[in-house]
Write a protein that binds this DNA or RNA. Structure first.
Length: 619
DNA sequence: AATAAACTGTTG
DNA sequence: AACAGTTTATTC
């Protein structure tokens, strides 16, 4: 008896067998079908077929076939199996991720693939030098300004034979590059990302599968593009958190790109503003090549100002005398300056001076934040609101102190100190400042995106330590890369000013000396000693369930599994936050020396309340 | 994951 | 017994 193997978007690592019925002969692996499944019907993916002697079950019959042709190439099917293993997900979950949001129906009417005429850049456009990338090799390209990256990618595109993939961490960045590239290759360039409507995604998908010599520009989902003649994969800012999928399977785009490049013998090019530590390690250990844009070495200089407790001005408490002098000098010269701070809003938290009560959320157990606008106390995890308290509920004291400095405070005191200056604020919510003629640009990390446009003569980071005191082993590395990226986007004669309580840190020495290697080597040494990436792989396993009793039970189940696998967590404790919307959370962290035993974690990934994340962006 | 069946405990 | 609320097994 001939049976068709089908998988579903469920955390079940197995196939279900069906009879082909009237679809016999048309069912290729990678086709979507509708089948009766228990008391309901479900959409599944065909993954194979098999022959059995006698029926073990009462097999049911496929009721509908959605795809005439498979949505996947054989290479992608193999990639799916790798993904399922690598991220402890079911094959169905992987397939659902790749074909997520595709419409089930095809547009009516005949599609005629238009004949492309102009595939090569016209001579007048061909001013750039062409650069070839060795097949099957990984190359890092360091750039300062965006046009350097664009120019480099364009030269790669021109030199390529076959299709190329250009991936970006955000739709906006992808869209910008798409415009740029489509200016040279209007007929070969395709824009693909997860926000497109399902019918268009399906149509584009079909085009990618049938045509050759295409340039696909897209976001992380584009890494699965079914291109059959892929010769080059480029990823911009590969360490950007936008590349990590948030749902199961939580794949890392760079890892998939690397798998495909190796499999197909294609080139892999990673372009970034500053090498991450693991990339530096890959290069220094000979696994990858480095190529540098000539202007990268012309970076804005960095100065570090140590905090001295005594000398604080009344109005500008967040600046040292030295920083104030620099600020005023820049302003007097009529130059622009940017101030980077990691907290937006006004205050971070309030606490009772008497008993240190810090007003935790009744459901989430972590301190709530005061919101000045609505005069309320809000939980940033569940969004609950309460009126601002007059007195401490624990001890009754009326002495409630406000702590922490936010962007808003800085704005207020700057306005007071310099009433005549125009100040623009830049946050993730309002990226483009309303007054682009401002002299001071005050913002959070979102400032980096428009750093090239404002081109400030001075970048001031008043609380550099605040970036480093985060509970994450990568905080120094991230700050180092952030500063380096910013200084490359600024004019080369500009200055970056950092205020810190720890001027002696190798991080700062390295920045001031403009010697990246100094920081990388120190940090690598530390990572090796503490068995952190790139020398291990981190795995975060989290439980989130409703009644506390259930959490205890699942903890016991997991911990038994861990001891069977001889896996010792380096962290075993409440999640952050420990409770969210009355759901209790528990967290385990592992440092995996190898990925050999991933299969044994299967039982954990089949529990719907348990989630697995490798190398999590947030610990 | 979605569903149904089995199993609780509470209450009149 | 009737009911709601919760846990457990099943899906080819």
């Amino acid at each position: 008896m001939k049976l068709v193997e089908i998988v579903f978007d469920l955390p079940l690592d197995r196939t279900f067998d069906y009879l082909a019925g009237r679809w016999a002969g048309q069912l290729q692996p990678g086709c979507r079908v509708r089948v009766p499944f228990g008391p309901r019907s479900a959409i599944g993916w065909v993954v194979g077929e098999k022959e059995v002697e006698k029926a073990v079950y009462r097999y049911r019959t496929i009721s509908r076939l959605y795809d005439r042709q498979s949505l996947l190439t054989s290479e992608l099917l193999e990639l799916c199996r790798y993904l399922a293993w690598r991220y402890c997900a079911s094959l169905g979950q992987v397939l659902a991720t790749i074909t997520a949001g595709f419409s089930l129906t095809y547009p009516a009417g005949k599609k005629s693939s238009p004949e492309r005429k102009d595939n090569q850049p016209s001579p007048e456009n061909n001013l750039f030098s062409t650069t070839a990338v060795p097949a099957g090799e990984t190359t890092f390209f360091l750039y300062g300004k965006q046009h350097q990256r664009n120019q480099y990618l364009l030269s790669l595109a021109s030199a390529s034979s076959g299709s190329c993939l250009f991936l970006f961490p955000e739709t906006r960045a992808a869209s910008c590059f798409h415009h740029f590239l489509a200016g040279y290759f209007p007929d070969r360039t395709v824009f693909f990302h997860g926000e497109l409507p399902g019918s268009l995604r399906l149509k584009l998908w079909h085009r990618l599968m049938t045509e050759k010599n295409l340039f696909l520009v897209g976001t992380r989902l584009g890494v699965f593009a079914p291109l059959t003649d892929l010769s080059l994969i480029c990823l911009d800012e590969p360490e950007h958190p936008g590349y990590q999928e948030r749902r199961q399977p939580r794949y890392e785009t760079t890892e998939i790109a690397s798998w495909r490049a190796r499999k197909l013998g294609a080139g892999l090019v990673l372009t970034e503003g500053c090498l991450s530590l693991s990339h530096y390690h890959a290069i220094s250990s000979g696994q990858a090549r480095l190529s540098v844009a000539s202007q990268v070495l012309l970076r804005a200089r960095v100065r570090v100002i140590p905090w001295q407790r005594a000398s604080r001005r009344q109005l500008l408490t967040f600046l040292t005398e030295e920083a104030i002098a620099c600020l005023e000098e820049t302003v007097l010269k009529g130059q622009r300056l940017a101030i980077l701070h990691h907290r937006k809003g006004s205050f971070r938290l309030i606490s009772c001076k008497n008993c240190d009560h810090c007003f935790p959320c009744p459901d989430c157990a972590l301190p709530m934040v005061p919101l000045e606008k609505t005069k309320s106390l809000a939980c940033r995890f569940c969004g609950q609101n309460f009126p601002l308290p007059e007195k401490c509920p624990a001890c009754g004291s009326k002495k409630i102190i406000w702590r922490g400095t936010g962007l808003h405070n800085i704005l207020q005191s700057l306005k007071k100190a310099y009433p005549h200056l125009e100040i623009a604020t830049v946050t993730a919510e309002e990226k483009m400042p309303s007054n682009p003629s401002a002299q001071i640009f005050l913002g959070t990390l979102a400032l980096e995106e428009i750093m090239e446009e404002i081109a400030p003569a001075l970048l001031l980071i008043p609380a550099a330590d605040a970036f480093l005191n985060l509970p994450d082993y990568r905080s120094e590395e991230r700050f180092f890369c952030l500063v380096n990226r910013c200084r490359q986007k600024m004019p080369p004669e500009a200055t970056v000013l950092l205020q810190t309580y720890n001027p002696g840190l190798p991080l700062f020495q390295s920045l001031v000396a403009n010697n990246d290697q100094l920081f990388y080597e120190k940090e690598l040494q530390l990572r090796r000693q503490l068995a952190y990436p790139p020398f291990t792989t981190l795995l975060k396993i989290e439980i989130e369930t409703r009644p506390e009793k259930k959490l205890d039970k699942q903890r016991r189940v997991l911990e038994e599994l861990f001891s069977r696998c001889q896996m010792e967590p380096v962290y075993n404790g409440p999640g952050y936050p420990p409770v969210i919307r009355k759901h209790y959370r528990w967290k385990y962290l592992f440092k995996l020396a190898s990925l050999e035993n991933l299969k044994r974690l299967r039982p954990a990934s089949e529990m719907p309340e348990v989630s697995l994340t490798f190398n999590p962006v947030e610990m």
